[in-house]
C-alpha cells in the first residue's frame, strides 16, 4: 500500500473535533441522566398491579426495545414534528430519541432489580409502618443498586456509542464533524481513525471500571 500518512490535518481539525466531542458528551450525559430517572418511573409502572398503569408501561418498553434506534431517531426528527405541529432541532430530536430509548432499557434493569428482592423485605418494612415510598428508598433500592450497577454501566457504554447515530440527523457531534472534515481534507483515514480513538478514550475507562467493579462485587458476595 502506497499511502503517505499525514497527521498534520488532525492538528488543523482538532478544534472542530473537540467541539464535536463536547456535543457527544452533552448528548450522552443528558440522555443517560434523564433516561435513568424516567426509566425508574416507568419501572414503577411495570411492577404496578394496576393494569391501566402496567399495560402502557409494558407497551412503552417493548416499542423502544424492539425497533432500531436509528429508526427511532429519524422518526423523532422527521415524523414526530408532524404530530407535534412544530419542527425540532436535530439535537432535540436526537436527545429525545436517545433519552426515551435509554429509559426503556433502564426501566427493565430497575424492574429486574426491584423484583429480585424478596417480598419479605416489603413486608418487614410495612410491618413497622413504613410507606411504599419509604420502603423503596431505604430498603429496596439500597439493596438492588449494587446488583444493578454492572447493567447500568453497560447501558451507559452502549449509549455513548449509539450517540454517533445522531450524526445522521446532522447533529454536530464528533461523528458528524469527522465525516465532514474527512471530505473537506480528503483524509478520511487519518480523521476517522482519530474519531474512533476519541470514542475509545471516552468509553474505555467506563468499561474498565465496570469490569473491575463487577469482579469486586462478585468477590464480596
Amino acid at each position: 500500500m502506497e499511502y503517505t500518512w499525514d497527521f498534520t490535518v488532525i492538528v488543523d481539525a482538532f478544534p472542530v473535533l473537540l467541539r464535536g466531542l463536547l456535543v457527544t458528551v452533552e448528548l450522552w450525559v443528558l440522555a443517560f441522566a434523564i433516561g435513568l430517572s424516567l426509566g425508574f418511573a416507568v419501572s414503577l409502572g411495570r411492577i404496578s398491579g394496576r393494569p391501566w398503569v402496567n399495560a402502557p408501561a409494558i407497551g412503552y418498553v417493548e416499542i423502544f426495545r424492539n425497533t432500531p434506534v436509528l429508526v427511532q431517531l429519524i422518526w423523532f426528527y422527521y415524523a414526530f414534528p408532524i404530530v407535534l405541529g412544530q419542527q425540532l432541532s436535530p439535537f432535540t430530536a436526537a436527545a429525545l430519541g436517545l433519552t426515551l430509548n435509554t429509559s426503556a432499557y433502564c426501566a427493565e434493569i430497575f424492574r429486574g432489580g426491584i423484583v429480585s428482592i424478596a417480598r419479605g423485605q416489603w413486608e418487614g418494612a410495612k410491618a413497622i409502618g413504613m410507606t411504599r415510598a419509604m420502603t423503596m428508598r431505604r430498603v429496596i433500592l439500597p439493596q438492588v443498586m449494587k446488583r444493578m450497577l454492572p447493567a447500568f454501566t453497560n447501558r451507559g457504554i452502549e449509549l455513548a456509542k449509539v450517540t454517533s447515530l445522531a450524526s445522521l440527523l446532522a447533529v454536530n457531534e464528533i461523528m458528524y464533524q469527522g465525516r465532514l472534515l474527512s471530505s473537506t481534507y480528503y483524509r478520511p483515514l487519518e480523521i476517522l481513525t482519530v474519531v474512533a480513538l476519541v470514542y475509545f478514550v471516552l468509553i474505555y475507562p467506563g468499561s474498565y471500571l465496570s469490569a473491575r467493579l463487577e469482579r469486586r462485587l462478585a468477590a464480596r458476595d
Binding site: 419479605g120 423485605q121 413486608e123 418487614g124 418494612a125 410495612k126 410491618a127 413497622i128 409502618g129 413504613m130 410507606t131 411504599r132 430498603v139 439500597p142 439493596q143
Partner: peptide, 24 residues
C-alpha cells in the same frame, strides 16, 4: 388509605416466620 394503615401498623406490630430483617 396508606396513611391509615401505616399508622395502624405502628400500633399493631408483627414478627414473621422468616424474620424479614434488612440485610444491608
Amino acid at each position: 388509605s396508606e396513611a391509615e394503615l401505616c399508622a395502624l401498623r405502628t400500633r399493631v406490630g408483627m414478627v414473621f416466620q422468616q424474620f424479614n430483617l434488612f440485610p444491608h
